[in-house]
């Protein structure tokens, strides 16, 4: 029994352990990065799913921006008013109430309303549409092709391809903006959650052509715009647009639209 050997071994390992402990302790103090404690608190209040809807890299990025004063306290679209209030408390600022917005796909040209120009068996990726013959197999070239890239990027499982066209579940949508960024045709836009009516068409084709392409396309006849009491509808780019700041949800536009382009939201 070589006791000296045992003692040396114990001593050396203990010494190394002690040295490392002290070294790290000192290093932690010397290399300490000052973090504003408000940032930690805000980070705790934010939902924490790092969707990027605020425009900052993750929830920690948003917290840092809020503390730095770059972002307003209601920057988080997912957390909505409740989180904005809490963040406002931490920052000592009153939070403004933001209207809840949801994404909406301005197209309803699914398999039942449009037809296929040809049968496509290539990659199901919306970003590749520019390279596909005739901009995609669907008869309408301005609408949703239904390949579903938007469904892949949604962190909240709020958008799905139903009947060949993308459809947003407005209960689940948190307006983070990821689907909007990825749609190559810009078909998705944010509208208020409680908007009652929406134009589900983005057709840029002239009237007769649009009628051939889809059974529910907007032909830019202008009936909706003429009959809107709040003058909230304009016809641009050969289809109708509703201005939700003016819209009073009366429903006249939907009644007057012969093409069933304006739908109930």
């Amino acid at each position: 029994m070589n006791v000296t050997g045992i003692l040396i071994a114990v001593a050396i390992v203990a010494a190394i352990g002690l040295f490392i402990g002290i070294f790290l302790g000192v290093a932690a103090n010397v290399f300490k990065v000052e973090v504003d404690e408000r940032e930690e608190k805000i980070l705790g209040v934010l939902p924490g799913n790092n969707c990027g809807g605020c425009g900052y890299p993750g929830c920690s990025g948003c917290a840092a921006a809020i503390v730095a004063g770059e972002a307003p306290v209601n920057a988080c679209p997912v957390g909505g008013d409740a989180v904005a209030d809490k963040v406002g408390e931490i920052m000592g600022v009153k939070a403004e109430k933001k209207k809840r917005m949801v994404a909406f796909v301005k197209c309803q040209g699914g398999c039942d309303k449009t037809h296929e120009d040809y049968h496509y068996t290539g990659e199901q990726d919306c970003q590749m549409i520019a390279f596909i013959p005739n901009q995609g197999p669907r008869s309408c070239n301005s609408g949703c092709q239904g390949f579903g890239t938007c469904t892949k990027v949604c962190p909240f499982d709020a958008i799905h391809v139903v009947n060949g066209v993308a459809l947003v579940d407005k209960e689940k949508c948190k307006a983070c903006g990821k689907c909007i960024a990825v749609c190559p045709r810009g078909l998705i836009e944010l509208i208020p959650y409680d908007a009652q009516f929406a134009v589900a068409c983005s057709s840029k084709s002239k009237g007769p052509q649009a009628m051939k392409e889809c059974t529910a396309s907007c032909i830019a006849c202008g009936m909706c715009a003429r009959n809107c009491p709040a003058e909230a509808i304009t016809v641009e780019d050969m289809h109708a647009h509703i201005d939700y700041d003016k819209c009073i949800s009366c429903g006249n536009c939907r009644e007057k639209c012969k093409r069933n382009s304006i739908i109930v939201h």
Partner: peptide, 24 residues
Amino acid sequence: EVKEAVTEAEKPAEEVSEAKTETV
């Protein structure tokens, strides 16, 4: 936790929107 944070956010939003539709 995410759901709780989100449902908490939704509740007052729902109340506000309900109030809005009533007023309208």
